[in-house]
Amino acid sequence: MNKRDKSFIIGGLIVAIVIAILAPFLASADPDGLESAAEKILLVEETEPVLEVPLPDYLVPAWGESPLGGVVSIVLGTLIAFLAMVGLATTARWFKSENGSG
């Protein structure tokens, strides 16, 4: 990887993490489009989520509604998304060289 790619990654991650840190403070807490529609016209009973997740609603459960939990959750999610994408893309490329097709 050359220097330009490295600085692109660092710069891109900084932009993403700044957004992640600001999101709990700036984001609107109003329901999103689907939730808003559901509030008006839902024909079925709402159910509980099937899976118990570690950071529900982008909050740290032990910290209640504290925006700090939001910051930690969203920054963590941003980094996990980055690493998962590197992993998936690298795996796909690795299969290419395994097959010897290029």
Partner: peptide, 10 residues
């Protein structure tokens, strides 16, 4: 792609 994934998540 990885930077885009991070940006879109945030």
């Amino acid at each position: 792609m990885a930077v885009l994934a991070a940006f879109i998540f945030a």
